[in-house]
Amino acid sequence: MPVVFERTRGLTEKEFHFCPGCTHGVIHRLVAEVLEEMNELGNTVGVAPVGCSVLSYQYFNCDMHEAAHGRAPAMATGIKRVLPDRMVFAYQGDGDLASIGTAEIIHAAGRGEKITVIFVNNAIYGMTGGQMAPTTLAGQRTTTSPLGRDPRQVGFPLRVSEMLATIDGAAFIERTSVHDPAHIRKTKKAIRNAFECQKANQGFSMVEILSTCPTNWGMSPLESLDWVKETMMPYYPLGNFRRPEAVTVSGASGGGHA
């Protein structure tokens, strides 16, 4: 019988521990598929963060490091400097990248570190039980902002892609979402483009992916997908914020951002 669909070789057989309706699994799969399609699995070293995807070193079928909280870009820098011809990626959540690891991500981008960062933004701390994240929206209720985030008291949610796009070392920055199949396909293209950018030594690349957290948002999986589209996307507009002019990317990914 002809095989029409199979598990990507980019993932191990370990079962995901993610909650029902969480889109981390989809994003893991996209990263794995891209590395497999590029025939880079045997040439890749990944870095797992601290947060919900802390165990991703068990899921990706390539050499992996487990970093300290927020330090994945620094760790990836160390690996890439030793192994400049390997693909090196860091997989980070919003607490890891946009809160405790802001210095590391900004300076990795500033140095034009030839690594790819997969930034999963679900506007909340999942692993620790639904606390406020740096990307938690104004008014959003979390366990540490029980009355809803009040920006006058606790600050405004950070738009990381826009911020990093101002840095010259950043070669490729794009925000996508995985709330429906069309956007999942676009996300995969963006991930491919980010890795191609690394392969071509063009500098730092990052894909920010809007993701769900039904458990801590207190919603059903379907409601969560709608919430991404209706509530997150207006504040975190999708699009490409930076791409190298010379590189031929595999089709235009995402819509251009003004």
């Binding site: 970093a67 330090r71 620094a74 160390g78 690996i79 210095a103 590391e104 300076h107």
Partner: peptide, 20 residues
């Protein structure tokens, strides 16, 4: 490589050491 902080520097060491 001059790191952005001591924190980053030791984690770069961690990465490089892991890479052999």
């Amino acid at each position: 490589l001059q790191a952005e902080s001591e924190v980053a520097a030791i984690n770069m060491v961690y990465g490089a050491a892991g890479a052999g």
